[in-house]
Simulated scan of single mutants.
Amino acid sequence: MKEAMVVKATDFAGRPQDLFINDLTQSKGMILADYGSFWRDHRRFALKTLKNFGLGKKSMEERIHEETKFIIKTLDKSIGKTLSPQVMFHFAASNIICKVLFGIRYEYDDETIKMILRQSYGYVYSLFIGSKPAVVINGFKTMKEAMAVKAIDFAGRPQDLFINDLTQSKGMILADYGSFWRDHRRFVLKTLKNFGLGKKSMEERIHEEIKFTIKTLEKSIGKTLSPQVMFHLAASNIICKVLFGTRYEYDDKTIKNIVQCIRKLNQSTGAES
Rank of each mutant, 00 (worst) to 15 (best):
M147C: 12
T167M: 03
N164Y: 01
A134V: 11
M143I: 15
L161S: 13
T68I: 08
V100C: 11
H184C: 15
V188C: 15
E145R: 10
F154K: 02
W181H: 05
L174E: 03
L174I: 07
E145P: 02
K170Y: 04
V136P: 00
V135M: 08
P133A: 02
F180M: 11
K144T: 09
K81M: 08
N95W: 01
H90Q: 13
K73N: 12
K150S: 08
N95S: 07
I152L: 14
V135N: 07
D110G: 05
R63T: 03
V188N: 12
E66S: 10
V136Y: 02
Y108C: 01
A155C: 06
V136D: 00
M115L: 11
Y123E: 13
S179D: 09
K190Q: 09
I113D: 00
S84F: 08
S169C: 11
G171V: 06
F140V: 09
S131I: 15
L127C: 05
K170R: 14
D183H: 08
F89V: 06
V149P: 00
E107Q: 13
R105V: 05
F187N: 03
A148H: 09
H184G: 07
S126Q: 15
F154Y: 10
G178T: 03
D153Y: 05
V124C: 05
F70S: 09
I97W: 00
R118V: 02
I79C: 08
G156K: 13
R63N: 06
F102R: 10
D160L: 04
Y121R: 04
A151C: 13
Y108G: 01
G156W: 07
E107I: 03
A93T: 12
C98S: 14
P85E: 01
D110R: 01
L75Y: 08
K73I: 07
L117Q: 09
L161P: 00
L127H: 08
L101N: 04
L117F: 15
D183T: 10
G122P: 00
V87N: 09
Q159E: 11
N95C: 05
Q119R: 08
T112A: 07
I71C: 07
A148G: 05
L166W: 03
A175V: 03
S169G: 01
V87L: 14
G171S: 08
I173K: 00
N138Q: 14
L117H: 14
V135H: 07
R105Y: 02
M143A: 15
I64S: 02
F162W: 11
D160N: 14
G156A: 12
E111R: 15
S126I: 08
L161Y: 10
E107C: 06
E66I: 00
N95Q: 04
F140Q: 09
P158I: 04
K141L: 13
F154Q: 02
T82H: 15
G171F: 00
G139T: 06
Y125M: 12
R182P: 03
D76K: 13
V149E: 13
F162N: 04
E107F: 04
F91L: 07
S131E: 11
F70V: 05
C98V: 04
S179Q: 07
N138E: 09
D109N: 10
K141S: 13
G139C: 06
S169D: 11
A93F: 05
M147E: 07
I113S: 05
I64Q: 06
V124N: 03
L101H: 03
